[in-house]
Design a protein around this nucleic acid. Structure first.
Lengths: 190, 190, 190, 190
DNA sequence: TATGAATGAGAATTCATTCAT
DNA sequence: GATGAATGAATTCTCATTCAT
């Protein structure tokens, strides 16, 4: 005996591997890595459970691949406007050196303690923001070379605010305006 | 009618409930809430598995109790030194309005997603730091009343740095000196 | 150090043992014996958990005591009215040979397979109803002696209806009027 | 597009899901739902513990599926013999409108409290027996239309006896002969 | 009698992962 | 590649029962 079964048409949005990553991104951001069963990822991706393990031998590989492929720390420098430190920082804020969705940013911060690869990526991002902020400020304020320590503190402060404003808002409901912080820091160094 | 009842003397290492909370504090801070089985809490506390559930019907109640009982957000104001905004902020940094062990601070930041009660406590702490920083700055800089928005941004920035410097250091290895940030902010408002 | 603690005033409705049985009766009838933790019995009774085991060494003893003490199968005969079989059976229906609350009746039927002592009590009750129905019918219908088998069937039928009408109503929502059945049976034998 | 898929041939003792239901049927009938651990079901079915939850996410789903799939209330009418009410009822008794093993019948009656779905099935069965008994009696006794109430009581009585005779016998050892009851009722209406 | 902390066996359930098809 | 049944270790949680006070 035999039965005729129609083959599921592929969903339009990408191949299976991509759909799995999409689903994982959404679920990891929402409930966290530990609280997300692979079965739920498969379900949301619309693929059979086994396929997840076909592409990602271990569950952790899904997270690692997500971070590897979807949180790219870019390295182009900000275009500094000489004399306009505030504007330069604002530009940096608007163009974080991170190509990642809000969901991926959330994952990056949330899962950082749990997994080395995530931590490393976050570290690189932090370093890059600081480096770029320092660089931008140096260009924007050519005169202030004298006070390297204060410049360093300013860059680190700005990086901390940029990195955590989103989490902070989500967790505490308190919104920080990066432009206001940029202006504040520029004033401090001016 | 009334009876005189002797209060239970605490055992040297505290009673069972306390030992359970101690163990949970250590383990949650180390590996995270989700990654810590209740059995391991019991083991480290030196109590039978069942006793954990005697005191804390659900696992999450351990976390909730920990946060309720071991992270007290205090509300005394910082002693502001008129004219010395940097010093005043430094004092605030040294005396966070949070009575909690380093482990509990770690839990507070890390598990904010895990449960509403943790999130609320973190939110209250954030609010309190901002309030206190604003208050301190107002006292220290009586002249700057004109620019409320910049004061607000300064307070929020300082709170963000205070809240996340520890996490940031742990995750990225990058250390921020709160005193330098205090000085920076004072300068910006000066 | 010592603290003055007011002793809980005893609740007005009986001593602890009675209150435990009251609570168990309510809970066993509602959710069943297996699904009722002893802790919930203690709670509803307003006594400490340990006291339940003081009076009833094992949980099953609560059920056994309930059945022993609160389902008394009486043995007085119904007053038969010669010539009025229907009325006599109706009287029997109104005055079941069972001194028990509706809750206890429910327990008797529900827990009968689980525990021998309950089963025995239910068996005795069934036997007694049949015996009494037969006796009543014999008195009420002196002429019908010829057909012992039909009388037996009538008595058993009436017993089944009396025993199960309540459960049936609870479970299926279908109500049976014992008087109508009494009348039916009387007619069958008349 | 379509693919030809061979239907899984059943293993000699049925596939795993079937074996799980078989085991549950036996154990629920024997010791009751609450007293049967899922581990014992798995053991008797010869499958690993986890597989039970693969097919039935919650334990109660085993019971629900059992009732859904293995207690079919049929709806064909009994062939009534005009003028022979007793014979017609006897036929109904021999051919209960229920396709179910003795074990399933036991489960149906015993676990009616345990879950709504069981209760509903039992209710439908009761309704169907009454409906059918009434219909059969109407056909068999065309003259008795005058007394609808008595007919109703007769149908309900017969249903109660049919439903509970088995339980009653098991619990009390008292056997009721449905034929005798059929005859009794026929006589009452004749 | 009274009390509630202590105990541990066992229950349901979860879930990453494997594997035959 | 695709599929979902199979596996079993681990986890949370329940609860009768004991026992020191």
């Amino acid at each position: 005996m035999a039965i005729v079964v129609p083959v599921n048409r592929r969903l339009p949005d990408g191949d299976a591997r991509t759909r799995i990553l999409d689903a994982a991104e959404e679920l990891f951001a929402g409930g966290g890595y530990d609280a997300t069963p692979t079965a739920r990822i498969a379900e949301l991706a619309g693929v059979p459970k086994g396929l997840v393990f076909h592409y990602f031998p271990r569950k952790i590989d899904v997270l690692i691949s997500l971070v590897d492929e979807r949180t790219v720390v870019t390295e182009e420098d900000v275009e500094a406007v000489p004399g306009d430190a505030a504007g330069t920082l604002s530009k940096l804020a608007q163009m974080l050196p991170l190509r990642a969705s809000p969901a991926m940013r959330r994952i990056l911060f949330r899962e950082a303690d749990t997994h080395r690869s995530v931590r490393e990526r976050l570290g690189r991002l932090n370093t890059e923001i600081i480096r770029r902020a320092r660089f931008a400020l140096e260009l924007a304020l050519p005169g202030s070379r004298g006070d390297a320590a204060r410049l360093e503190a300013a860059a680190a402060t700005f990086a901390a605010v940029l990195l955590y404003q989103e989490s902070l808002c989500l967790l505490t409901g308190h919104h920080i305006d990066p432009d206001a912080v940029a202006e504040l820091i520029a004033h401090a160094l001016g």
